[in-house]
Amino acid sequence: MTANNKFHLYVYEGDYGLPSLNVECTKCLLYMSMSKVPVQVKTLGNMKHCLLYSAPYFVHKNVSFKTYAETVLYLNTLNYNLDAQLTAKQKSEALALSYLVQSKLRATLEYVFWIDQRNFEEFTRVWYARALPLPFNIIQTKKFKENAVDLIDSLYHKDSTIEVIKDNLNVLATECLSSLSARLGTSNYFFGEEPTSLDVVIYSYLAPLLKLPFPSNSISTLVALWPNLVQFVSRIDAKYLPGLPKESKYIKNEEKMKTSDDEVSYIAISILTFSAMTLAFGFAVSKGFISSKLF
């Protein structure tokens, strides 16, 4: 096989046991892992990749695709098809359910990632700032955030307040998750024992809510209420995405700093003491309380 003949996939990096922090990238990665495509994964971690590609970006021979849907269509022509054994009725259900998940959970995810002030400032922005090289982290973060704001704007009346939106998203997510849980029941995957593209889509939307440690997580803890969905995610993790480190790569330092908040930092105390002393001394000298021939 020549170098040109290989499959290449460019994605945003994963963390916290997620294949990628970007939902679309997760879908691509999981689909390829399930259908056993021999793909070479490259992360957008350096200047060159960030400049040339936007994730997810799939290259094979001389064709390239920028979205999950197009990539799957192309892979199907190469006989990498997860849905081949489904009946017409199951295909119809899969289409409907994937739209249900996308329309209800996508808005929720975008809200949790980008709109929620605390999550955005303390988690999402920090993570992307460290994962991507300098100009791109700012540009990409801005793009993602604008996209999320546009999505929420187009869904809700412009007068609605952030609390109302949050409440409503909560209701939508609960509805959607309980539907999924009822539909999954006790089976391993949504259509029996073999995974399909529907499982790919559902995993990609559930896993970030379950795994990422968002600072304000009223919505993201919802998934844990349905144990069969949690098992579904860990089943796929174990079988198709083994060996993903659970530890965080980028926000470790942040946590260390936080724990040191409670302890006494001796450096900080000595700097503060020193500057206070200097200030007091300087004041005394300038007012003439202490006279010295040196000044």
Binding site: E93, A96, Y99, L100, S103, S179, L180, A182, R183, G185
Partner: peptide, 17 residues
Amino acid sequence: NEQKSDLRAYMTLVRNV
């Protein structure tokens, strides 16, 4: 419950396509 989740799914399908 399963039928209700079907109903919801197909309604979103119509709305979103």
